[in-house]
Design a protein around this nucleic acid. Structure first.
Lengths: 381, 381
DNA sequence: CTGCGGAAGTGTTACGTATAACCTGCTCCG
DNA sequence: CGGAGCAGGTTATACGTAACACTTCCGCAG
């Protein structure tokens, strides 16, 4: 207990350095080029270090009107996908001196509390991920904040920017892989969650199968746990004729599905192939390892944060979203906002200014193989 | 773009309700019992709702000198254990109107940045979890904030409170279980991370085995990935005589170890038993499901946050940590700070005021069985 | 000699809130 | 009848910072 004295303020630093508080602010703010002599500037920095001065961020935020803090709305960090999303967003945020505060998952205490209250901090903007429908309703009420949507329905929102994962393409890749192996009877183990990202999986799966002349897949809904996947897959495998492949909405369900297969005395992948989504740690922990669609969660989080920062920059410059103020963003951040994705400016009225789509890739591992009875021919590798 | 007008302030609300700004603050702050008439109070609330008023939290923080924000330092949220920890802390925080901001993992950008800067928000206190040694050094420099340590070495810290998981007991339970099954040759797949929580595992394992007259376990270190666990286990299983049980520092390593067992043509648990730690989702996703020590991560996070809130309350009351100001905490929060754990007040000088130890429990699943060659007798169940 | 512009600072203000301090009637009691 | 006390307000202030507006000094061009 070191006397527990109050934290030094910029005025204390000024007194110690023999200058005014304004000078301290200028020096520490880095904009003293022709305003403070190098000697006094050094004295200020020395005094600040000596006293262990830290600017009061609340006061700064109040003065500046911005807080360098963003709210990230995710359903549950215990899902590794969202943890990765957060990691990417937090990394980019830290690079720009921003903080990230999380919206407590809606399953938390009582009915969805006001995100802005529960954040406990003043906010500059919001990044909202999928599966947050009722939270979004609350968000709209405080619509003065710039909003970036992640992996959400591109329409029906006044988001300033949208970053999507190309889930549909991922599903097409998974189905293509299964078709190539010779599968024709495919069942869908679907997450029973009202979320755009899962709707896309269903639609893309049905479409891809129909395009190949296969029957539409039976859909078996499940929660989000391993056991849910096992239950749904058990029902799916009871069908006659039995499906030869189970396409699961995420890796957790896929792992559960594998257990159901074995519980029937069947083998993965020799008797039944299984695919997942996300490429979680879990995908390489189970045996056989899961064939899964790798979603670039960190990149998505990073891209979302970059988009938010760009919007914030644009706001500060007073530019309309479309207006290209040459040189307004010094280091070309705007162009580099989403390095790997295809970014297009939407022309539709009321649409988000930027829609970015990040590519996904199927990762083939041991949980898929040709269906039983397939002759090992030259094309069978 | 709804004209993008500036957010209404309490003065705007006052004007709309025909009262002074002070009255608005009193009403909305809930302390208007004998200060404002019910009629005007209602008018204030109505006006606030009408205008969509939200208090400026930066201004409030500046005025009050506290921010209702805590910093949680964890190594990586992508580890489900820490995600659960965060969930518990965030839940309790939200219940008390607090926010939680995370310290970006040290593996992030460059050398450990100043946590307080990167937090981007003014802070009331810090909760630091295990594995944050170098971050702690930075934390010390700003030692004016109350610090709660989670699952960390109880000595050697000026923490205001400490919440520990009884890891040693968990390890004793695991070893006891294996000994009961008849195992004598046990190897340790250890996480090569410099962290107190892993040191405890090693020490407790050795001690428990020696107490039973078993040889000290060979230790094989690994990183934190599935593949690391597989590699380390492969080396462990190459020993002669081969160990009959692998005790792993966490579930991810355990899952990897299971793969190594099977890669040698052996079976889990018939030929080799495997145990883990944490009881992650992964523990029930692999087959056989993992026997593991369940760590109450959410409870730990919640207890840590409660401890911090109690410390903060104590500070505000001006009480010394030991002084029991009767009734200082109205709703008995102090007593209920850690409902399930054993809390003791340390008497040692310089020790944290409160040390709480949360119980852990072994969960027996399919990955453990008697060692090969065990006769199925009456005691063998 | 005068005017001017830049360097080097300082004084002052505003951000929005919570609350201490003050003010004004009114009632009630000695 | 003279306060005391209280309900029901208002005014004023401080929190710590950033930045605008202003002053002073000085070198130098006209």
């Amino acid at each position: 207990m070191t006397t527990d004295r109050p934290r030094p303020t910029s005025r204390d630093v000024a007194r110690a350095a023999g200058v005014s508080q304004a000078a301290v602010s200028l020096v520490l703010g880095g904009k003293w080029r022709g305003r403070v002599s190098p000697g006094k500037a050094a004295a200020v920095r020395e005094a600040a270090r000596e006293l262990g001065y830290r600017p009061n961020l609340a006061a700064r935020s109040l003065r500046l009107g911005r807080t360098r803090t963003a709210l990230l709305v995710v359903p549950a960090l215990t899902n590794e996908f969202f943890a990765r999303l957060h990691a990417g967003a937090a990394r980019v945020a830290a690079e720009h001196g921003f903080g990230v505060v999380l919206y407590p998952s809606p399953e938390g205490v009582g009915p969805a509390r006001d995100p802005f209250d529960s954040a406990g901090a003043a906010l500059d903007g919001v990044i909202a991920s999928s599966m947050a429908s009722e939270a979004l309703a609350a968000l709209r009420s405080g619509g003065e904040l710039p909003l970036v949507m992640l992996d959400s329905e591109p329409e029906n929102t006044q988001a300033a920017a949208t970053v999507n994962l190309d889930i549909a393409d991922g599903m097409r890749q998974a189905v293509g892989h299964l078709l190539e192996l010779g599968h024709r009877r495919v069942a869908h183990i679907a997450a029973a969650v009202d979320s755009w990202t899962f709707e896309v999986r269903s639609a893309a799966l049905t479409e891809a199968l129909e395009a190949a002349g296969c029957p539409p897949p039976p859909v078996w809904t499940a929660g989000l746990d391993v056991a849910d996947g096992t239950r749904a897959a058990a029902r799916a495998l009871a069908a006659v004729p039995r499906p030869t492949a189970l396409v699961c909405d995420d890796d957790v369900l896929a792992a559960g599905a594998c257990k159901a297969v074995r519980r029937l005395g069947l083998r993965v992948p020799e008797d039944v192939s299984v695919t997942g989504f996300d490429d979680l740690t879990l995908a390489r922990a189970v045996e056989p390892e899961l064939t899964t669609v790798r979603l670039p969660a960190e990149e998505a989080g990073a891209a979302g944060m970059r988009a938010l920062l760009a919007v914030l920059d644009g706001r500060r410059e007073g530019a309309v979203p479309d207006g290209r103020r040459e040189g307004a963003v010094p280091d070309g951040r705007r162009e580099g906002a989403v390095p790997d994705g295809r970014t297009r400016e939407a022309g539709g009225s009321g649409s988000p200014a930027w829609v970015t789509s990040l590519p996904v890739r199927l990762t083939v591992r041991g949980s898929t193989a040709p269906p039983p009875g397939t002759p090992v021919g030259p094309g069978g590798r």
